[in-house]
Amino acid sequence: MKKISISRHLGRCGLFWATALLLAATNAGAQTESDSTATSDENGKAEVSIELRYTEANNKTKMLETTVKTKVEDAWQAAKGVPVNFYRNEAAPGQLLGSSTSNDKGLAMLILPEGEEKFATPSFEYTYIAAIENNERFEDTEEQITVAESAFEMTLEEEDSVRQVRISLKAMDENGEEVPVGEVEVNLYVQRLFGLLPITEDPETTDEEGEIAAEFPADIPGDTAGNLIIVARVDDHERFGNLEFRRKINWGVPVVVDPAKNARELWSSRANAPIYLIVIVNAMIIGIWGVILYIVYQTFKIKKFGRSKVNLQDTK
């Protein structure tokens, strides 16, 4: 569906003032329409829900993500343009990590600053809060999540032509020692252009050593150098949230680019247009526009002859 908004672009272009007024009027109209359909409480504010998720990638990047929804005619729908405040431990001004505004899918995200470790509780846990506060359209809402410190790693090994993906998952005990975590489902994928391709039929599960060893298939196409991105993921774990580890390695079957794809054909890219077509089209353009430009040039000559005084006398 081709549904796109470009009001920002219009603003930049500095359109005619009347257009700006019309735009403002239409904006106001749309706002009212949106609000009128949402279910409101006695204060006139709409009911809203937040879903808060924690994701840690490659043991390094930590991110908080919320989905903001509001009730429209008894159905929950994504709420766009809602500011969400993110806090550590409690929703107090001193604990504010940052703010983000929900997009058209209701998503608002915040990447946590480095050095979160120093804020861990004695049991090596972190608590985060996402809150909608003092919003004109929506009632105050907050959601809290607590996640445990973890060490999620993936190593890739090749022995006797057998390729193995090894996963290790550890967490801290009360003494600050790393201990393996068993019975956690881990999904293994290969990154493709439009999504993730699972490389095992079912999720693998960590053993009592917190490890997984899975054989990697040898027939997955990679890029021209055979490179692949292998992805290991723990999804929505009640203790750790989402964990992800990605690594690039040349375990794929190198793709051989068919030279015919670079041939000059009707269906090729614009850089490989057939020579005969380029010649024909350009010859037609030059031929026709040549005549047009000649006529325009002749038209200017009409003006030149118009300055002739002798002729004016003749014709009067």
Binding site: T299, K301, I302, K303, F305, G306, R307, S308, N311, L312, T315
Partner: peptide, 11 residues
Amino acid sequence: LALGWNNHPEQ
């Protein structure tokens, strides 16, 4: 738009 038209034969 008249381009100085004065019915000159060349025009």
